[in-house]
């Protein structure tokens, strides 16, 4: 195996220098996805740049109306952070079932985004939260909606010399249902066969006043279906309402067959996942 250089920049300025000198480098933070691909030989970068020592892009910053999460923040840190739990229970629920504790201590939110797997557990919550991402290079900082950044499995709008530096999420005020469920082949350490993130505002009588829904693992990227959100709005969050929407979900997702499940099974599960929402009708669980 050829010798591969590994750089550990301590500051963003160091990073920009390294990326200029070694533009063919591959950038990683936790490495939990990258090293699996490296080992299989599907990628073979001549050098690696590890972001784990860049304190400038680690941690959570309270910006008043928004929360800024540094891209190199580990899932474990985020899950244990009081601001995540207080403002984004939907994200905390997804982080709690993401991989396993040691992987959560290594993997980062930025890695989950840039890896852009349709099964990435933080992605459906970040889609319904309308997360905005921050991309930086030596010269500029630009921002865009997460949903525009990811355009296919593993495909993101990141140019040479740029890295993802963080995610900005607006704090919620009225949403009282935060739901995330993943169906996998086992409970721990499972890649999603299908998942659903749902953020709802429910009236005291159980009428849906606002709904945001996003499915994972049932399309090339996270799937959002505004027609289902509209159809749910104004309705009582009942079994009948949700059941009535299942065909609309099944018709509009575009899953594939793979080693974990068939497309047909995923289509069925994507619809059925909606039924779980009825548990919140009376304020539970």
């Amino acid at each position: 195996m050829p010798l591969r250089d590994v750089f550990l920049p301590r500051t963003l300025d160091d990073l920009w220098d390294t990326l200029e000198q070694r533009p063919e480098s591959m950038v990683y933070a936790g490495g939990t996805d990258l090293f699996v691909r490296l080992r299989s030989g599907s990628i073979a970068p001549p050098s690696l740049v590890c972001l784990e020592r860049l304190n400038e892009i680690k941690g959570v910053r309270d910006e008043g109306e928004f929360l800024f999460i540094g891209a190199a923040t580990t899932h474990g840190f985020l899950l244990a952070h009081p601001l995540t739990v207080e403002h984004f229970p939907i994200l905390a629920k997804a982080l709690a079932v993401l991989a396993s504790p040691p992987v959560r201590h290594m993997g980062t939110i930025g890695g989950n985004i840039v890896n852009a797997s349709p099964a990435g557990d933080t992605l459906p919550p970040l889609y319904v939260l309308d997360a905005e991402i921050e991309i930086s290079s030596r010269r500029e900082v630009r921002r865009m909606p997460l949903a525009d950044f990811i355009f296919g499995p593993g495909e993101v709008l990141l140019g040479k010399g740029e890295i993802l530096t963080g995610v900005r999420v607006k704090k919620l005020t009225n949403e009282n249902v935060h739901h995330y469920e993943k169906v996998g082949l086992r409970k721990g350490q499972a890649c999603a066969v299908a998942s659903l993130a749902a953020l709802l505002r429910l009236s005291p009588s159980g009428v849906v006043e606002e709904a945001r829904l996003a499915w994972g693992s049932v399309g090339p990227t996270v799937v959002t279906l505004t027609e289902v959100e509209h159809a749910l709005t104004g309705e009582v969050l009942s079994h009948d309402t949700l059941k009535g929407l299942i065909p609309l979900v099944r018709d509009n997702v575009s899953p594939i067959d793979d080693v974990r499940a068939s497309a047909e099974y995923r289509r069925i599960v994507a619809g059925q996942l909606l039924l779980r929402l009825q548990q919140y009708r009376w304020g539970g669980p």
């Binding site: 750089f7 690696l48 590890c50 784990e52």
Partner: peptide, 21 residues
Amino acid sequence: GACTILVDGESRLSCLMLAAQ
């Protein structure tokens, strides 16, 4: 998890870490 080690007291996987780290 067979390769679990503690890095600054936290469990991590030594098969997914490079010496430089």
